[in-house]
Design a protein around this nucleic acid. Structure first.
Length: 372
DNA sequence: AATGCCGGGCG
DNA sequence: CGCCCGGCATT
């Protein structure tokens, strides 16, 4: 009879995705990245049936939500946000190393633990090379501004108005650390920064810690005040992780080749909470470019991981294109937009996870999540 | 071939 | 409107 049973899909996605009435965006992402579990769907024809359980990422997660009748997800196993990345506690100096090696090792060890050599921030990371350390208390110098929000920073593309430039101090060294790499100075290579992005409809807030994100969701969206302890874990459902290739960032930031002259208005990436750094585009003329703002860490290509354009960076649809100073709007020309090179939902999530795309993308419209 | 998305159709 | 897709420009 009916050729396509699209209703099935929509219901499936909506039903599953929306634990609460009124919310429709179901950009939920399985814990951890791309586990791409049982999506045995055929992206081609097939009426794009969704996988049997869009968010049932395997039993490992506790299989809380596989059906339509799902209730607020069972706490899917306290997702240790960045617990993956097993950092060997320490490369224990081998007993039988050559003397010089031992020396080197010793030197390194002392280096990494000596506060003196590291300047101030020593306090920020525990002696134990830890993710744990940065996850929570990071970005918070012992005695300085410790406002209500206990230690997670974040920036909020959507509710920008709140305070684009929170009265924040010059940017403590810790922050720099955070920006440029990892919390702990060691653990150099192939590092991945994990951020947490709120998936609530028009929010998109990004925080550095899962706990912070949970709190955000709990308070702002769920309107609860409950103690985190007695949370039922529903918040988990409303945010996702963003992986950010730090290497990319570091590269970009440190070795800024004097390229990308004008126009290139790359999406600022999340951690640039620095008031001035943010909004290279939305803000008026660059108040002189002293030596300040680096062109930006990534202006194209492979660095998209670090450039996940924060959803909705633009101030308002109404104001028209206040940004993009140059670019003599060749709009007159019927030409389409040159096709921004920002990675769109499709690329980011892949066809298989179409359900995670923004609506626009799903409808084959201009992507609204990763604006150019 | 894959992507991004305009233009347009349908309920 | 929301939703979807044909089809075309781009990559």
């Amino acid at each position: 009879m009916s050729p396509k049973l699209k209703t099935v899909e929509s219901q499936a996605s909506l039903g599953v995705v929306v634990p609460k009435p009124g919310r429709s965006w179901g950009g939920l992402q399985p814990p951890g990245r791309v586990a791409a579990p049982g999506w045995d769907l055929d992206p081609k024809r097939q009426g794009r049936a969704l996988p049997h359980s869009p968010w049932g990422y395997g039993p490992a997660v506790g299989g809380g939500f596989a059906g339509l009748d799902f209730a607020p997800p069972q706490k899917p196993e306290p997702r240790a946000p960045s617990a993956h990345i097993p950092v060997p506690a320490h490369r224990a100096p081998q007993g039988k190393a050559r003397p010089d090696e031992v020396m080197a090792a010793a030197a390194l060890t002392s280096l990494s633990t000596s506060p003196l050599l590291l300047g101030a921030p020593a306090a920020a990371f525990s002696p134990e090379p830890g993710l744990a350390s940065w996850q929570e208390p990071l970005v918070q110098p012992p005695g300085s501004y410790s406002s209500g929000s206990s230690g997670d920073w974040g920036w909020d593309p959507a509710s920008e108005q709140s305070s684009p430039c929170t009265p924040s101090p010059p940017l403590p060294p810790e922050a720099a650390h955070f920006l440029f790499g990892e919390p702990a100075p060691r653990k150099r290579k192939s590092s991945v920064q994990v951020l947490f992005q709120c998936l609530w409809k028009r929010c998109g807030k990004v925080l550095s810690t899962a706990s912070g994100m949970q709190r955000h969701i709990r308070l702002v969206h769920l309107g609860r005040q409950a103690e985190p302890e007695q949370s039922d874990g529903e918040e988990d459902f409303y945010y996702t992780e963003l992986d950010i290739g730090l290497d990319t960032l570091t590269d970009g930031l440190s070795s800024l080749t004097p390229v990308s002259p004008v126009a290139s208005t790359p999406p600022a990436f999340p951690h640039l909470e620095l008031p001035g750094l943010l909004h290279p585009l939305a803000s008026p003329p660059p108040p002189v470019l002293s030596s300040a703002r680096p062109p930006q860490a990534c202006h194209s290509d492979h660095s998209y991981q670090g450039c996940l354009a924060p959803p909705r960076l633009e101030p308002q649809p109404g104001t028209g294109r206040a940004c993009v100073p140059a670019l003599p709007s060749k709009l007159g020309a019927n030409l389409r937009k040159p096709r921004g090179d920002a990675k769109k939902c499709r690329k980011v999530y892949g066809v298989e996870r179409r359900a995670l795309w923004c609506t626009a993308c799903r409808w084959k419209k201009a992507c609204r999540r990763f604006l150019d």
